[in-house]
C-alpha cells in the first residue's frame, strides 16, 4: 500500500511535488479567472495551446522552455483575440464564440500533429495531449545549477512559474483586485484595464503550457477551476482563499497519488478526482452556514 514510497521514493516524490506545483499554480491563476467569470477562457486556452505548440515545434524543431513560453503566449493571445473578434463582428454570444475559437484551433493542432512529423526531442502524442503523463516527469533530464541537482526539468520549470506568479500576484495585488472587482472604477482611476486583462491571459497561457506535459488539456481545466472553488466554499477573503488553494494542492497531490497507486491508474486523473472530492467535502461542511439567512436580514 505504501510500497511506492518505500521502494521508488524519488519517483513518487517528484510526481507528488509536480502535482502540488501544478495544482497550486493553476489554482492561483484560476482564482482570478473565476472572479472574472472567465473559467471558459481557461478551458479554451488549454485546448488551443496544442496548435501553438505544434506550430512552434515545426518551426524551431525543439521543445525548449523559451520556445514553449513564446508559443503559449502567442496562442493564448491569438485565442482571446479570435474570441473577441467573433463576438464583436457577429451576433455570436461570448460562450459560443469561445467554443468556436478553441475547438477550431484544437482541431487544427490535431491535424498538424498527424500531418507533420513531430519527432526528435519532442514527445507529443495524442493521448499525452489529452491527459498528460505526470508519471513520466521524474524521467526527464535533471536541471543542474552550479553542480547542484535541482530536479527534473518540468518540475523546476513549474516551480519557477509558481514563484514568478506569487511575486506578480503580490506586487500587483491591488491592480488585479480592482480590475477584477470593478473594471469601470479601475478605468476611471486611470488603470489600464485592457493591459491587465491581456497580461493575465499571457500568464494563464504560460501556466497552461507548463502543466500541459504533466496533465494535458482536459485535466488542466479541472485544476484551474476546482482549487479556487474549494477555497471559495471555505472563505470569503481573497488572501485566505490563496492559502486554501495551497492547502488543496498539498492534499490533492499526496492523496491523489496514493489513490493512483491503489487503483493503478493515472496519477493526474486521481489528483483531480481527490481534488473534486475535497471540493464536495468543503461544500457539504459549509452548506448549513450558508443556508441561514444573510446577516443583514436578521432583526436587530
Amino acid at each position: 500500500m505504501v510500497q511506492p514510497w518505500t521502494e521508488d521514493f524519488m519517483v513518487s516524490f517528484w510526481i507528488v511535488v509536480m502535482g502540488f506545483l501544478v495544482v497550486a499554480t493553476c489554482g492561483l491563476v484560476g482564482t482570478y479567472l473565476l472572479l472574472r467569470r472567465m473559467a471558459l477562457v481557461g478551458d479554451a486556452i488549454s485546448h488551443s495551446i496544442l496548435f501553438g505548440l505544434v506550430v512552434a515545434f515545426m518551426i524551431f524543431r525543439s521543445g525548449g522552455t523559451m520556445v514553449m513560453f513564446v508559443a503559449a503566449v502567442a496562442t493564448g493571445l491569438l485565442t482571446v483575440g479570435i474570441i473577441e473578434f467573433i463576438h464583436r463582428q457577429s451576433r455570436v454570444k461570448t460562450d459560443a464564440a469561445i467554443c468556436i475559437a478553441f475547438t477550431t484551433l484544437f482541431a487544427a493542432g490535431v491535424v498538424l500533429l498527424s500531418v507533420a512529423e513531430v519527432k526528435g526531442p519532442v514527445h507529443l502524442d495524442a493521448e499525452c495531449v489529452l491527459y498528460g503523463e505526470i508519471a513520466f516527469v521524474p524521467l526527464d533530464p535533471a536541471v543542474e545549477v552550479l553542480g547542484l541537482v535541482l530536479g527534473p526539468t518540468p518540475v523546476v520549470r513549474m516551480a519557477g512559474v509558481l514563484v514568478a506568479l506569487l511575486v506578480l500576484a503580490t506586487v500587483f495585488y491591488k491592480e488585479l483586485l480592482v480590475t477584477s472587482f470593478d473594471p469601470a472604477l479601475a478605468k476611471s482611476l486611470g488603470i489600464r484595464v485592457g493591459i491587465w486583462h491581456y497580461g493575465l491571459m499571457a500568464v494563464l497561457s504560460i501556466v497552461i503550457v507548463s502543466v500541459f506535459e504533466a496533465v494535458g488539456a482536459i485535466l488542466a481545466v479541472a485544476m484551474l477551476v476546482v482549487p479556487p472553488m474549494f477555497a471559495a466554499q471555505l472563505s470569503d477573503r481573497l488572501p485566505v482563499r490563496f492559502a486554501l488553494v495551497f492547502l488543496h494542492a498539498a492534499l490533492s497531490s499526496v492523496l491523489g497519488y496514493q489513490l493512483s497507486v491503489w487503483l493503478n491508474c493515472s496519477p493526474a486523473g486521481a489528483m483531480v478526482v481527490v481534488g473534486a472530492l475535497l471540493f464536495l467535502l468543503a461544500w457539504a461542511v459549509t452548506r448549513p452556514r450558508r443556508a441561514a439567512f444573510p446577516a443583514w436580514t436578521a432583526p436587530n
Partner: peptide
C-alpha cells in the same frame, strides 16, 4: 459582483488606488 471575496474596508481602500 457583491459575492466578491472582499470586505467593506477593502472596497473603500480601492478609492485610494
Amino acid at each position: 459582483d457583491w459575492d466578491f471575496p472582499v470586505n467593506v474596508m477593502d472596497v473603500v481602500l480601492m478609492g485610494r488606488y
